[in-house]
Amino acid sequence: MTVERADGGGSGERREALGTIARATLDELRHTWSLLDPEPQHEFVRPPEAGMVMVRGRIGGGGAPFNLGEATVTRAVARLKSGAVGYATVLGRDLRRAGFAALLDAAWQTEAHRDLVEADLLGPVRARLAASSELTARRTAATKVAFFTLVRGEDEP
């Protein structure tokens, strides 16, 4: 039995959960939502909507901010009958993905659903992302230059 967390698990956990949900594919999200039986009653406080955010960089990497260019994003806000309100803002223009993301953020905050969302969605997505970055890092590491110096000159070692 899990402990009741009125604050939705503390902002640190919620923040991490939202970040993970944002990286989930439509299929991953839809699959987890389909496992919630019966399907929770819900409504969209803000139906999925596509738009943009201005991506900012910093001069020199660490200085004053500047506007680099925009990225497409989709956002949605969903409320479950239990009262939990889920928020989603995800890169891209897939309205369905943003809709499911908001629903699953709300489900994650609901005591009855959290374990399933953790086990079926967040765990696998974290594992997929970790495996993908591990593979990228290993492939990149194979292109690391191993410098060696040729000893020249007449001096005996």
């Binding site: 738009g51 955010v53 991506v55 900012r56 960089g57 910093r58 990497g61 925009e70 990225a71 956002r75």
Partner: peptide, 14 residues
Amino acid sequence: TLLRFGATLPVDTA
């Protein structure tokens, strides 16, 4: 044709 929702935090390239 797209609405701008806001700006991101400055990216941390480090």
